[in-house]
Design a protein around this nucleic acid. Structure first.
Lengths: 141, 141
DNA sequence: TGACAAACGATAATTATTATCGTTTAATAG
DNA sequence: CTATTAAACGATAATAATTATCGTTTGTCA
């Protein structure tokens, strides 16, 4: 009996020109079973239960591959290294997916968010940080 | 002649219980002159022009101190390590400043952003990533 | 001014991630 | 169905970013 996850992953790989390996297949399945925002290490620990011989490097390599192919997305578009915010005014960020540049944009220029103090679940809102993700003028050619 | 930056920094330190050292003072001044989103290393390179003997560790220690005191802010509330987004639906994030947890919230629950295709400067919008920053129910006590 | 805690500089340690390389495996042509 | 070959694997070294350690120096406050 074939599970119906396999064919869809096989298709996904075909669409992106990736070879279908056992490791990749199980990696993908394991991640699907981890809702939320797992780190590569967390994925690795889970994956080892199904493929004890798997390497952490393989996990990193394939997660990067999935991200670069657009099969998966990162939680933060700029998680790389610490950046200090030196713009004192209320503003948000334009993040270019190609050149990775971050530029500032006035809150007024993109429209205000409807502000609420409390959200469902009792979360107390302090501020909104909005990343507008797309292509900057330069990178559109 | 005293520059009027010094007294305000002195006050800032007093408010947050920090000692006023020469290194800290110049670090702060240098960062103020770097609009945008400098990295610790970029700050270090600039700062060395004014205090050649300064250590990179001192830069890191004091930036962290400033961040923890709330004197400065980070560009991204979750820059730490790579996180994979496994929630397929359109959603945004509630980021707790205390426990660092990231939970998902439906786009509908926080109100829609006014969507535009193009922004001033020719930026081509692909999607919005919104972080609602504040305190989760747990951390409010 | 002098004592003491805090901050400094140098550098070791840690963590996250990527690169290298010899071996194994999947794709596919015959 | 098997042989060829490029791609992927596992182990591990290398790199980059950040934090910890520790002996010395400096700011704070009595």
């Amino acid at each position: 009996m074939q599970t119906d996850l396999k064919p869809s992953f096989r298709q996904l790989c075909a669409d992106h020109g990736l070879a279908v390996t056992h490791q990749r297949q199980v990696l993908y399945e394991v991640m699907q079973q981890m809702p939320g925002h797992p780190s590569p290490d967390e994925v690795y620990l889970r994956l080892r239960k199904r493929i004890p011989s798997i390497s952490l490097a393989t996990v990193y390599k394939n997660i990067r591959l999935f991200l670069d192919s657009g099969i998966l997305q990162e939680v933060s578009p700029h998680h790389g290294s610490l950046r200090v915010e030196m713009n004192g005014h209320a503003h948000h960020h334009l993040v270019c997916i190609r050149c990775r540049s971050i530029s500032d944009i006035d809150e007024a220029s993109i429209g205000e968010m409807p502000r609420r103090k409390k959200l469902s679940g009792g979360f107390l809102v302090q501020r909104y940080a909005i990343d507008v993700i797309g292509l900057c003028a330069e990178c559109q050619r």
